[in-house]
């Protein structure tokens, strides 16, 4: 029974993907859309092969992963402690929530002129844009999670003499760990989405840059092949992060 289900879990998405490819193929085959507007799956596949053989794809993947990882690590490294702190201090939370929300709603695209002005070219402007996109949602979700920890945990902690740092590391932090992992998945998703925009500025490589370069050269087949790679890598990274939810001391946050 269980095996059957896991089989269909795998099978159903595959059917949907194949169906999607088929529709795409048929649209191109019957020329419902002119070829210069929508390359066919075959064109995209050939283009991927070309990029792989030229070594550009591997290089671009590494460049993009590097930028996203740095931007993400920075926003998590600063956002998680900041969110934990804000969650415990109602006054500061009250004071800072509006401005944090304000920045959360600013599209990273809006920061592009400043990114160039402040960080010139190279990895830095892209990392800055990713950071600006991922940091604020991270802080807000962790802050909210901490503020809504059931008070019973703190009462129990009081009974058993947890105070200060110990209270933070042994009660507050584990109590919100499931939400921290969810926040990290969401933020990583945002960071990865932003990569295309972030690499529009001052970069000479990367998956996002690849799309812009292809557009400028009117190579839509290459653009599509890069899109496919971006989507697949995003999916893979999320699967990797979701493995964290299987840890035994975190599982409770999802099984209840």
């Amino acid at each position: 029974m269980k095996q059957q289900r896991s089989k269909s879990n795998f099978l159903l998405p595959l059917i949907v993907i194949l169906g999607f490819l088929l529709v795409w193929y048929l649209v191109c085959f019957f020329k419902m859309v002119p070829a210069y507007q929508l390359p066919s799956p075959g064109d995209a596949a050939r283009s991927i092969k070309e990029e792989i053989l030229a070594g550009r794809l591997a290089n671009d993947i590494i460049a993009s992963l590097w930028r996203v990882t740095i931007g993400f690590v920075l926003s998590a490294g600063l956002g998680i402690p900041f969110g934990l702190w804000l969650g415990q201090h109602a006054r500061s939370r009250q004071a800072l929530t509006p401005i944090l929300n304000f920045f959360r709603f600013l599209s990273p695209l809006a920061w592009i002129p400043f990114a160039i002005l402040w960080f010139h070219i190279g990895d830095k402007p892209a990392i800055f844009l990713i950071f600006m996109a991922a940091f604020f949602p991270m802080v807000i979700s962790i802050m909210t999670a901490v503020a809504s920890i059931p008070s019973i945990y703190f009462r129990v902690a009081r009974d058993y003499n947890y105070k200060g740092t110990e209270l933070l590391t042994k009660v507050t932090f584990p109590a919100v760990l499931p939400q921290i992992i969810t926040a990290m998945r969401v933020s990583y998703g945002i960071a990865w989405v932003v990569i295309v925009a972030a690499e529009m500025v001052g970069c000479q490589d990367g998956l996002g840059y690849g799309i812009w370069d292809a557009r400028n050269g009117l190579r839509l087949d290459t653009a599509i092949s890069y899109m496919v790679v971006i989507g697949l890598l995003g999916l893979a990274m999320d699967r990797l992060l979701s493995q964290l939810t299987k840890l035994p001391n975190i599982r409770w946050g999802y099984d209840r």
Binding site: I152, R155, V156, Y160, P174, A175, W252
Partner: peptide, 15 residues
């Protein structure tokens, strides 16, 4: 030393 036993959910679920 006083300790409380709660109706439910008093255990730390991560331990």
């Amino acid at each position: 030393v006083i300790r409380t036993v709660y109706q439910s959910d008093g255990l730390f679920p991560w331990l």
